[in-house]
Structures are given as structure tokens and as C-alpha cells.
Design a protein around this nucleic acid. Structure first.
Lengths: 201, 201
DNA sequence: GATACTTGTTCTCTGTTGGTTCTGGTGTAA
DNA sequence: TTACACCAGAACCAACAGAGAACAAGTATC
């Protein structure tokens, strides 16, 4: 996503990935396992991994617990949660993905992720503010599909797409909003809507 | 709901799970089994587990009894699917419930089930034909909640409820449909909407 | 019914563990 | 040189864990 890890950081991350902990290890345990003798040193590496969003932060919480991978690719029923989809913010800017349980029926076999909807632009398609949408990662879409589109490289939005020769039209599903017309070079498809969830409590 | 258990808490929980109690153990018994010598210490851990919803609380009730797993939420990620919710058919008539995977975030701790929506009567609330709705089984509702209501004993419908002295009003979310007014005796609440899911593929 | 015994609950006190922040040192590459 | 990755160790402090005492309410016993 961002930031390149140093050799040692990568090494520690690899160790955490391949290990199968019954309970999350403490810094001391990791030190022993990695042949270090200073918690402080290790802590700096862990902090870097937290910064990179690869390890859960343990703010003060002294949970006898240290790190847990926030990498969610493996788990079948959880998908990374990349934050909000709204005007003015590219998705890739979201720092550390959390994860969200998603039933198999709402996703596809290809890589997917979850966004939380902000705004009312798709309200007539039954997508409301606060809904979670499941997005299949894809850079091509068929006409009529609802897509996550990156406009001019810095504004991500959820709209129904219509691709015509020489222009791309993004249709909101809200009578008070007009379709947006762009040159094909301005619009980059980042994913296609495949599922949606909402909670009422 | 997540909540991180400390090591000791996890350890105690594991012990409770693997043990097969004929009668629920007392704090003293657990202390001996776990090598503690203070009920007070153990009690603090148990309280944490109760807080996390993993153990049944024993509020004051001095039943010579302590804890029992309320393993409800943990892996109950599938809910019974009772069929369609549409006019003209009471829910209890559905013969054989299948089951559907539902993420924990879309359900509650109390018994829930899933229905598939038929019709457009709640379209302005973002509930479309074909959506799955997660219903918490309940026979009472607060005004403003969306409920599964059985009218005259033979017609189940999904509507927003308004209960006034002497009458019950079921509000559709569709400008082309009018609210339905009934005598309280005619309407029986069968559940309350707590979650919703949709697939686009 | 009065008694003693259980059992859950709350409290204080004490010690340990573990995350965090320092300071300083070494080796390496630009 | 400067910059950076890496490590050691010390110190700090809050979270954690346990012991023990005391209390209240249920249960058993006579």
C-alpha cells in the first residue's frame, strides 16, 4: 500500500505471518524468538509495522497481547475494510484496513473489499448513507454496472457507469443529481459493486 | 462485540469450554482447578467474560451456581431462512427452513431469522425486491421500527410501525402506497428488522 | 426460627508484566 | 562527514494478576 519496509521489519512481519500463535505474543517473547535482547529495539520495528497498517496497534493497552495481523486475505469470510466511499477522497489513501465479516453470497471469487457509503447519490438504487458495499476489485466494467470510479485521479465515487465512444457517463441514482460526463482518460474503474449490507441497530 | 481478552481470561474461558460440568461450578471449585487461592481474583476475570458476553451472568442470584457458556454469538454465523416476505402468506407457513450465512454485525444476540423481500413497498427505505432482511424474533416493537407484521392472522408484511391508542398504522415506504390502519387486535408483530443484505451478481 | 455454612460480590493492597520512551552505541551506505 | 538501520539497556507507568478481608444474601442444619 505504501512505505517500504526495512529488511528487519520485513523479517519480523514474515515471522509473525508464518507463526501460529495460540495467543498473541508479547514483545519479550518475540525478542527471544528473534534473538533480540531489548524490547525497546523491537518496539520500534513493531511501531513501524503498525504505522504501515500491517499490525494492530496496542495503544498502551497492556493486553498480554501484542500484535495481530490485520492482513485479512486468507480468511474466507472476512474482507478488508478500506474506509468510506465519498466524493473527494481516493480509496488508496485509506491507511490501515480493518476487516469485516462478509457472507460468501455477497462476494465473488475474485478479490473483494468493503467500503462504507457516504452520501445519498445512489439512494434510488437502495444504497443509503452508512451502508457497506462489497466491491470486486476490477479495472473494467460493463455498461450498467455500479462501479467505484476514480475521477481525475483523486476523487473516488460510487456510480452507475455508461461507457460510450469518447465519453464516460457516471449516473447517480438520485433525481436531484445530474449524470456526470467525462473523457475516458479522466475515469478509472477501481471495482464493481457485487454486494451490499446494512444494519439497523 | 470484539473485545480483547487478556491471557488469563482466555485461559479461563478455554478451561470452561473443554470441561464438561454436570452442574455449573462455583468460584471456589474453579479457583482450585485453576490453582488460585482467591475467589475475588477469579471473580474479576469472570466478570470480564460476562462483560464480553461469553459467559452467563449470575446477577446476585446465589444459586450455588456460577457460569455456563452462552456460546450463542460465537459461531452462529448461519441463520434460518424462512422464505419470502410478501403479502398473502404468513411466515410460519414456510415448510423447511434452509440457512443463510449472516455476519455477526447484521444480527443481534437474540434469535434472528432471514426473509427474502418481495415487492416494492419499502423501496424508499432502501429495501428492494429480492433483498434479504435479517429479523430479530420479537413480539413487541417501538414506534418507527420496521417490523414483520402478521395482519388478521394470515398476511405477513414488512412495514414501518406506528402504534397509537386504539389503532396501529403500518407505513409503507413507497409514495404510491398509502399507510394501512388496523385495530391493534388485528396486527401481530413477529419480528423487527435489524439487518439487510443484497447481491448484485 | 436461630444458627452456621456457602457462595457471589466488592474492596484494598501488593507485586508482576509488558508497552512505551528514553539515551547511547555500532556498523553501513551515500 | 551525515544519515540511517539496528541494537542494548535503563527507566517509567499503566494494565494485569493475585491475595485476603469483609459483606450480603442464599442454603443447610439443628
Amino acid at each position: 500500500m505504501k512505505i517500504n519496509l526495512t529488511r528487519r521489519q520485513q523479517q519480523i512481519l514474515d515471522y509473525l505471518r508464518e507463526q501460529d500463535f495460540d495467543s498473541p505474543p508479547t514483545l519479550d517473547e518475540l525478542c527471544r524468538a528473534l534473538g533480540l535482547s531489548s524490547r525497546g529495539s523491537l518496539h520500534k520495528h513493531i511501531s513501524a509495522l503498525v504505522e504501515a497498517g500491517l499490525v494492530e496497534p496496542m495503544d498502551g493497552k497492556h493486553r498480554g497481547v501484542v500484535l495481530r495481523e490485520a492482513e485479512t486475505t486468507a480468511d474466507a469470510d472476512r474482507l478488508p475494510f478500506y474506509g468510506y466511499i465519498a466524493a473527494g477522497r481516493p480509496i488508496e489513501a485509506i491507511p490501515r484496513p480493518e476487516s469485516l465479516e462478509v457472507p460468501a453470497a455477497l462476494r465473488t471469487r475474485r478479490p473483494c473489499y468493503v467500503l462504507e457509503v457516504r452520501g445519498d447519490s445512489m439512494i434510488e438504487d437502495g444504497i443509503l448513507d452508512g451502508d457497506w458495499v462489497v466491491i470486486e476489485q476490477r479495472d473494467q466494467a460493463r455498461n450498467g454496472e455500479v462501479v467505484v470510479a476514480l475521477v481525475d485521479g483523486d476523487e473516488a465515487t460510487l456510480k452507475r457507469i455508461e461507457q460510450q465512444p469518447g465519453e464516460v457517463i457516471l449516473h447517480p441514482a438520485n433525481g436531484r443529481m445530474a449524470p456526470l460526463r467525462y473523457h475516458p482518460d479522466q475515469v478509472q474503474v477501481q471495482g464493481v459493486l457485487v454486494g451490499q449490507m446494512r444494519r439497523y441497530h
